[in-house]
């Protein structure tokens, strides 16, 4: 896949270039794939890889938004609920005869409203984003149940447009969209003034303000983007499962935070890389599929998943230390 480009700068500053090199993570990913290939004769196959590729887009796009939110020193706990709310809204609209395009616009609209709410309350009024988005985690989930009458809607082939495999390749359109978004988000973060502002805000917001830049607008933009990406994830899932489930995405915020933090993005802000988050998502996805293929019991799956998340993060920290020592 897209893994293992050599040391790629992602933070702007020199030290950052070293610490964001995705070598450690790629290594962890390769080790995992090798391990599962040994344990299951069917794991290393085109079918499995394609399955993983088609399952990851929702988590992938949410992880992009989460990376940005963490970089500015915030957090967005509402993404799983926003995913469900926008997907059920789109699902109900399509059930009522709306075209997929209208439904998609509606979903993204729902996402923007949620994001604007998160952004304006946390940035405008200075309420910690943890609290604001925790509130929306509850409220949006409730709204999803209200909108759908707590019922799963089956949409059938009309929902295929959002995620159905593109002919020949077997890869879904949503996978390609997610990959393009990863690249765009990484470029915006590392090569644009906007991206530098975000990193600066996360490092020292006061300094940014003193430098004459208003940090509020970029911060609100980030919250809106995060919620819109969650809505997009909702559409991907809607298309992939061909139904809208108000219980969709429960716990998704934690998977996304795990993936992003595995990727070395700091919970304290000012540091992060979309590419590395992408690797974090791949690690989680490979783990999910691999563990299911070797047929581990449910409790063991959870123990192993937790352990791998920690080990992957440790591996990256150790690699970073080793890499920085000679220059030190």
């Amino acid at each position: 896949m897209t893994a293992s480009a050599p040391d790629r700068p992602a933070g702007g500053a020199g030290w950052a270039a070293r610490s964001f090199a995705p070598v450690g993570l790629s290594l962890a990913l390769v080790l995992l794939v090798a391990l599962f290939s040994m344990l299951s004769e069917h794991f290393l196959s085109l079918v499995t890889l394609r399955t993983i590729a088609n399952q990851i887009p929702p988590l992938m796009v949410i992880a992009i938004g989460m990376t940005y939110v963490l970089i500015i020193g915030g957090i967005d706990l509402s993404v799983g609920s926003v995913l469900a709310l926008s997907a059920t809204a789109a699902g109900m609209a399509m059930h009522g005869g709306a075209s997929p395009l209208v439904a998609a616009v509606l979903a993204l609209l729902v996402g923007s409203v949620c994001g604007a709410l998160n952004g304006s309350l946390s940035v405008g009024l200075g309420v910690p984003s943890f609290i604001v988005t925790l509130g929306l985690l509850e409220a949006a989930r409730g709204a999803a149940y209200l909108v759908s009458g707590s019922q799963t809607q089956y949409l059938g082939s009309s929902a295929e447009v959002f995620a159905w495999p593109i002919g020949g390749l077997g890869l879904s359109a949503s996978f390609l969209v997610a990959m393009v978004l990863v690249v765009v988000a990484q470029v915006v973060l590392t090569r644009t003034v906007f991206g530098r502002h975000l990193i600066a805000i996360g490092t020292n917001e006061e300094a940014v303000r003193l430098a004459g830049i208003d940090p509020r607008t970029p911060k609100i933009v980030v919250f809106v983007a995060s919620a819109c990406l969650a809505a997009l994830a909702g559409l991907f899932q809607l298309g992939y499962l061909q139904s809208a489930d108000p219980n969709a995405g429960i716990g998704m915020e934690l998977s996304a935070i795990a993936a992003v933090v595995i990727g070395g993005t700091s919970l304290m802000g000012g540091r992060g890389s979309v590419l590395n988050s992408c690797l974090g998502v791949l690690i989680i996805a490979v783990l999910q599929t691999g563990l299911a293929q070797i047929g581990l019991s449910e409790p063991m799956k959870r123990v192993v998943t937790g352990a791998v998340i920690v080990v992957a993060a440790v591996l990256d920290v150790v690699r970073e230390r080793v890499a920085s020592r000679p220059k030190g």
Binding site: S40, H42, F43, S45, V47, T48, T51, Q55, T152, Q237, Y240, L241, S243, D245, N247, A248, G249, I250, Q288, T289, G290, A292, Q293, I294, G295
Partner: peptide, 16 residues
């Protein structure tokens, strides 16, 4: 849950 069952079902189909 739908999404979780989907992951498990996909894995089962590739494995068997």
């Amino acid at each position: 849950e739908q999404a979780k069952a989907n992951v498990v079902a996909s894995a089962l189909l590739s494995e068997h």
